[in-house]
Amino acid sequence: MEGAMNVSTANAVSPDQPILSVKDLKVHFALGGGFFNKVTRHVKAVDGVSFDLKPGETLGIVGESGCGKSTLGRAVLQLITPSDGQVVWLGDDITGLPPKTMRPHRQNMQIIFQDPLASLNPRRTIGDIIAEPLMTFHPHLNKTERKKKVQQIMEKVGLLPQMINRYPHEFSGGQCQRIGIARAMILQPKLIVCDEPVSALDVSIQAQIINLLTELQKEFGMSLLFISHDLSVVRHVSHRVMVLYLGKIMELADKDDIYRSPKHPYTQALISAVPIPDPDLERNKSSIVLKGDLPSPINPPSGCVFRTRCPYADEQCRDIVPALEGVSFSNDDVTPSHEVACIKWQNL
């Protein structure tokens, strides 16, 4: 399935140029601070993340709760203003743009949310909900044209077009997620951030929604930032996978590489925890159990942020902040296809 990046949108950029490039992105939230108090501490939700996203590519972002996945997705879309770093969209730096200048870019980047029902305004019909981006960016369309477009996209995402006048509470979770996808897709954006789009759905519906997303991607060629904590789902949809821990990238690699030979101890632990759908294998497999909890992002551990839970950590890990290192390289021998942030990956 991967490799079938059929870029069919009219003004697509050349397939090698990254559509989105994030450079050393940081999102720090101030704590305290009120009328009289000074801001004393910061939550470092995202702390120096860099990556590129090619047209038609799906980048999976995995990590446990509170590691900054969703914040990263929102910061890319400028829904949260980054504290530092750059988000470069089609060659333009869009970091911290004022709403007016940001607006034209918004029709190319959309988001799908975790909770399907909460992402739909309960007081509006789904026709209105899906049409909202159209009303914003194509206000000249008249009612019939708008309705036609809405019904077309509804059919595309597997909703009956005659449901257009219904309200969100009259739909099931899976259908609501389809509505959310229709709203995101109606302007045919180049990037969709999927913020855990299936984790609130049950397994059979998950499969439908994921297949729908990949089908739509084949047809329209948009890139996806697929945020999830479910490794098997990410494996199914992604071309590349990024592992986040406490706001930092631990490992970033092509999907096959990262699942076949994870280099970072954290990735290894995550992947060993994925259940195997075969009772005999499942019983005999050895999984790495991490001790302790995610440290507080208010004051993260020195050196490698993972060292407090890493089975291999020692003195060195306390002092050295590991940078992303290339493990293997793609054809041109320059761009790494597999990167890891661990000073000991060669010895593990």
Binding site: L79, R106, I111, F137, R183
Partner: peptide, 8 residues
């Protein structure tokens, strides 16, 4: 948030 993302 979706409305924000949609430039409303």
């Amino acid at each position: 948030e979706a409305a924000h993302a949609g430039g409303v």
